[in-house]
Design a protein around this nucleic acid. Structure first.
Length: 769
DNA sequence: CTCAAGTCTCCGAAC
DNA sequence: GAGACTTGAG
């Protein structure tokens, strides 16, 4: 952030007024009242981070011990940056003592210390979303709950939501009324049990257990209240109920709590964020001082005005007036593209042009999109043009199968009870312990409340096993146990090296053929060097701490050489960042806003806030683009331009023609069929810039499904929709499967029962949700 | 029990 | 269109 002025050494030593001298009056106000509750409403680009950094530095300068400050940020990266800047102001030694990090990382650190009080061991595992989804699947299977009726994702979502609302499984079961909720109640209970038995916590548990810890004993609450005498919470609009509760408890006694946020940038409702937390802060803490940071230092007047145009369409919001002294700058550029390949080529082309013309560097650019799948086309285009890039999020390093396997091996080493990890690696590479054997071992373990690992240790007592499987299982657990013992005697990186090599995982990929085997092998090796690096950099490295760090890592941390590369990420990932030039791609109805948000006013407003966040990342130039055809789910669709585009005043927009590079990129065969296949409107749409997107857009067009070509209607069909069939009457779609001509739907009709229909033949009329 | 080919699900954002 | 999961032959 450009407006941070480094404070010189002499200034640092000066009086406090000197420290705060470089701030504007509002920012200063946000810093110099250090006691009592404070709410800082900070608009996008208003120098919020700067104000927070100075506030913390000021606290320290006023004599507050740095170790009594708790600063909860949204990402670990934000915490690190904040610490680095505090170090510039008051010295590294002090800065290092501040408790800065995400809710999850700080709480996990505390829980590690207090684990025994809650019935865990200190080496408890942390399970990520994928792990917990696997666990939910397994529970559903074992309870005989059909995964057709209720998807594991939906069940996990419901469990997570319950946890975030602090509903125990007992309470949840009591108030469950629909069939779905009753089923979820059963899964919830069993899931909790199994996580306990695995000595594991998921992300939600980290918050819940922190609250449980604080509630367990007034003395503990008192201790941590004292420890965190000054609390600061960033991005408060995106806290969920559990996070809210933990803060309430910790701050209740001393009331030195400062929260910072912007309701217009709340974009995590879907994972439990409750916007009311910020709206009601003044009621929670009566004598709150409220400070508004409304001057934007980041963007041009035009970009800021465009953002304001958009957010105005939201009904529910706190009024604020963002303004800026910056220049008007360029208009907002808008480009219509044929498809996502052309869109990506246009981005590449523009970057090249701006670099040679304006002297910008690669790091000055960011490409933002709605869903991770959109990164593919961009990645291809960047590769072809040899432009260095980094993709943040999505299928990141830590989500790859081989990496997760390697980490599961390590988790098992410190926490043998971790059944999820056990199942992941016990037969990877194949050791002759197959599904059937595992089922029998699991049955035995369940009866006796043992972990799978312990069950294998007494494998002779497990009934109905083949001799071979018995030996293999026993060999496996003794092998792991041997390495666990050496952990106490040898440096951890050496143990890990020997252990992983002996696991056979690297060799498996070495010997495998196939395109990605080599990459996978290298990824496993990368974990090894990562562990080595970790153990060199830390004074007392433990494998448990390493695993915790990795589990709670945010992807942004992987962006190493941020200097020389273009950043690509989702709009969610861009929160808190800024770039001179920003591209927002895929501005299409059904993609942004997403189809399912179109009919939900609350969700639509969240999408709009997301657009607002994305726009306000841009400092100098903003490029928006949309395509006329796009593949989704392997099927072609012809989206309308996003009506968010129409919400920006026309006076701020300049439409661009197709770029030369983009035009020549297009294979000629694509053009001929184009007009023929394009449904509805603009038959005249040529390849020139003559036609406007306003021709494309028909904002109020009441488009019914029957007007859309059959092909599209077919892809729009999804479970939950009500449909009408000429013979069977009205029914409800249960699921949709297959693609192309094979695409078929299972539909329950009133009276007639369930039918599977080939969509090619069955002319289903969609009635709605 | 294992492997390869076939089938199904996914593509909604992430600590 | 890829990756995860299932299925059927050795």
């Amino acid at each position: 952030m450009k407006n941070v002025r480094l404070v010189s050494r002499s200034e640092r030593k000066g009086k406090s007024q000197g420290l705060l001298a470089g701030l504007n009056p509002k920012q200063r106000e946000a810093c110099n009242k250090i006691d009592g509750p404070m709410l800082i409403l900070a608009g996008a680009g208003s120098g919020k981070t700067r104000a927070l950094t100075y506030r913390l530095a000021y606290l320290i300068e006023q004599g507050v011990p740095a170790s009594n400050i708790l600063a909860l940020t949204f990402t670990n990266k934000a915490a690190r940056e904040m610490k680095a800047r505090i170090a510039d102001l008051v010295g590294a030694e002090q800065a290092q003592r501040v408790w800065a990090g995400t809710f999850h990382s700080i709480f996990a650190r505390i829980l590690r210390r207090e684990a025994e009080l809650l019935g865990y061991t200190r080496s408890f595992s942390i399970h990520d979303g994928e792990d917990s989804l696997n666990q939910i699947r397994a529970v559903m299977t074992d309870l005989g709950i059909s995964q057709q009726d209720f998807t594991p994702q939906a069940v996990r979502g419901a469990v997570s939501k319950a946890k975030n609302s602090l509903l125990s499984w007992q309470e949840y079961q009591r108030q469950a009324d629909s069939v779905f909720e009753q089923q979820v109640g059963l899964v919830y209970k069993e899931y909790v049990n199994r996580m306990r038995r695995s000595n594991a916590m998921d992300f939600d548990d980290i918050l819940l257990n922190m609250i449980a810890l604080l509630r367990s004993d007034p003395a503990i609450l008192a201790r941590y209240s004292r420890q965190f005498h000054y609390i600061l919470v960033d991005e408060y609009q995106d806290t969920n109920h559990a996070q809210y509760m933990s803060i309430q408890m910790l701050a209740k006694e001393h009331r030195n709590i400062c929260v910072v946020g912007d309701d217009a940038q709340s974009i995590y409702r879907w994972r439990g964020a409750d916007i009311r937390n910020i709206l009601q802060f003044e009621k929670d803490f009566t004598d709150t001082s409220v400070v508004r940071l409304e001057q934007n230092y980041r963007s041009t007047k035009t970009i800021l005005a465009a953002a304001n145009d958009v957010i105005q369409h939201n009904v529910r919001q706190l009024k604020k007036e963002l303004w800026t002294d910056n220049d008007a700058g360029d208009p907002v550029y808008l480009r219509r593209c044929y498809d996502d390949r052309e869109e990506a080529a246009a981005v590449v082309d523009t970057i090249k042009r701006e670099i040679s013309g304006k002297g910008l560097k690669y790091k000055d650019f960011a490409v933002l999109y709605r869903i991770n799948a959109q990164s593919q086309a961009l990645e291809d285009a960047f590769r072809r043009s040899n432009i260095p890039y980094v993709i943040i999020g999505g299928m990141s390093f830590y989500k790859r199968k081989e990496v997760k396997d390697a980490l599961a091996y390590l988790r098992l080493l410190v926490n043998p009870s971790d059944n999820e990890s056990f199942l992941r690696v016990v037969n990877e590479p194949a050791r002759g312990i197959g599904k059937t054997s595992l089922q029998r071992i699991a049955a035995y373990a369940n009866d006796r409340d043992l972990s799978l690992f312990d069950a294998c240790r007494s494998i002779e007592s497990v009934p109905n096993l083949q001799k071979r499987a018995r030996t293999a299982a026993l060999d496996f657990v003794s092998w792991v146990a041997r390495f666990t013992e050496t952990l106490a005697e040898m440096p951890m990186d050496e143990v890990v090296k020997n252990y992983l090599e002996a696991s056979g995982l690297p060799r498996m990929y070495q010997e495998a053929h196939g395109d990605d085997a080599f990459d996978r092998y290298n990824n496993v090796q990368r974990i090894l060097s990562h562990v080595t690096e970790y153990s060199r950099e830390n004074a007392e490295p433990t494998l448990t701490d390493y695993l915790q760090e990795v589990a709670l890592i945010d992807d942004a941390e992987d962006a190493q050489d941020q200097d020389k590369i273009v950043t690509m990420m989702t709009m969610h990932g861009a929160k808190g960042l800024e770039f001179p030039t920003v591209f927002i791609v895929g501005m299409e109805q059904g993609l942004f806003p997403l189809a399912r948000a179109e009919k939900e006013p609350e969700e639509l407003e969240e999408e709009r806030r997301l657009f607002y966040v994305a726009i306000t990342r841009a400092e100098q130039r903003l490029y928006l683009s949309y395509t006329q055809r796009r593949y989704r789910f392997g099927e072609l669709s012809y989206p309308q331009p996003s009506y968010f585009l129409g919400e920006i005043g026309k006076d701020k927009i300049e439409e661009l023609g197709r770029s030369q590079a983009a035009a020549s990129e297009r294979p000629s065969r694509g053009r001929g069929s184009r007009q023929a296949t394009r449904p509805s409107s603009t038959a005249s749409a040529g390849t020139t810039s003559k036609t406007s997107y306003f021709d494309d857009i028909k904002p109020d067009e009441d488009q019914t499904y029957s007007q859309i070509p059959e092909e599209q209607n077919r892809s729009r069909l999804r479970s939950g929709l009500r449909v009408h069939h000429s013979k069977f009457g009205e029914g409800k779609v249960l699921n949709v499967a297959g693609s192309g001509d094979q695409r078929r739907a299972r539909v329950r009709f009133a009276g007639v029962g369930e039918k599977t229909l080939m969509l090619k033949y069955a002319r289903l009329e969609v009635l709605g949700d």
